[in-house]
Computed example of a mutant assay.
Amino acid sequence: MREQLNSKNRKKRKWLWITLSILGVLLIGISAYVYSIYSSVEQAASQMYEQPTREVSEKRIEKVEYTEKDPISILIMGVDERTGDIGRSDTMIVITVNPTTQSMKMVSIPRDTRTEMVGKGTQDKINHAYAFGGTDMAVATVENFLDIPIDHYIKVNMESFQEIVDAVGGVTVTNPFSFTEAGYTFQEGEITLNGAQALAYSRMRYKDPRGDFGRQDRQKQIILGIIQKGASFSSINKFDDVLTILGGNVKTDLSFDQMVDIQANYKEARHSLEQLQIKGSGEKINGIYYYTVPEDEQVKLSTTLREHLELK
Rank of each mutant, 00 (worst) to 15 (best):
213 F>P: 01
266 Y>P: 11
141 T>A: 13
201 Y>N: 10
198 A>V: 01
237 N>E: 14
132 F>D: 12
238 K>T: 15
196 A>L: 12
250 V>L: 00
154 I>K: 09
231 A>K: 15
169 G>R: 05
257 D>V: 13
200 A>N: 14
160 S>P: 11
264 A>F: 14
134 G>S: 06
204 M>G: 08
234 S>Y: 03
156 V>F: 12
207 K>E: 15
147 D>C: 10
142 V>L: 14
228 Q>D: 15
195 G>A: 00
160 S>D: 11
237 N>W: 11
184 Y>K: 08
260 V>C: 10
197 Q>E: 14
146 L>K: 08
216 Q>H: 13
220 K>Q: 15
244 T>C: 01
260 V>Y: 10
129 A>H: 03
254 L>M: 10
192 T>S: 09
136 D>L: 12
182 A>H: 14
144 N>R: 12
160 S>C: 12
166 D>Y: 00
208 D>W: 03
137 M>P: 02
122 T>E: 14
174 T>V: 11
138 A>K: 09
172 T>F: 03
143 E>Y: 12
204 M>V: 12
182 A>G: 04
218 R>P: 09
214 G>D: 14
228 Q>T: 10
206 Y>C: 02
175 N>D: 13
229 K>A: 13
251 K>A: 07
252 T>R: 08
152 H>M: 11
197 Q>F: 05
151 D>R: 06
245 I>L: 14
175 N>H: 08
190 E>I: 04
196 A>M: 13
246 L>H: 08
149 P>M: 08
144 N>G: 00
211 G>D: 09
145 F>T: 01
186 F>D: 06
263 Q>P: 00
188 E>W: 06
249 N>F: 00
151 D>W: 07
150 I>H: 12
261 D>Y: 13
173 V>M: 06
232 S>C: 08
180 T>R: 04
199 L>I: 03
168 V>A: 02
153 Y>L: 04
184 Y>G: 03
239 F>M: 14
194 N>K: 06
244 T>M: 03
265 N>A: 12
211 G>C: 05
256 F>V: 08
187 Q>V: 03
134 G>W: 03
222 I>M: 00
177 F>A: 14
249 N>L: 01
261 D>L: 15
248 G>F: 04
257 D>R: 14
190 E>W: 07
137 M>K: 01
242 V>S: 05
159 E>P: 07
206 Y>R: 06
160 S>G: 05
153 Y>R: 02
169 G>D: 13
258 Q>F: 07
232 S>D: 14
224 L>C: 01
133 G>Q: 06
185 T>Q: 01
139 V>S: 01
188 E>R: 02
209 P>I: 09
253 D>M: 02
124 D>A: 13
260 V>G: 01
249 N>W: 05
237 N>H: 09
134 G>L: 02
138 A>D: 13
255 S>Q: 12
147 D>R: 07
159 E>Y: 01
180 T>N: 00
265 N>F: 15
258 Q>N: 09
133 G>V: 03
260 V>R: 13
228 Q>V: 00
241 D>H: 06
239 F>N: 00
261 D>S: 15
264 A>S: 15
250 V>N: 05
207 K>D: 15
254 L>Q: 10
185 T>F: 03
219 Q>D: 13
247 G>H: 05
222 I>L: 05
182 A>V: 03
161 F>T: 11
198 A>C: 04
249 N>I: 04
174 T>S: 04
192 T>G: 05
182 A>E: 15
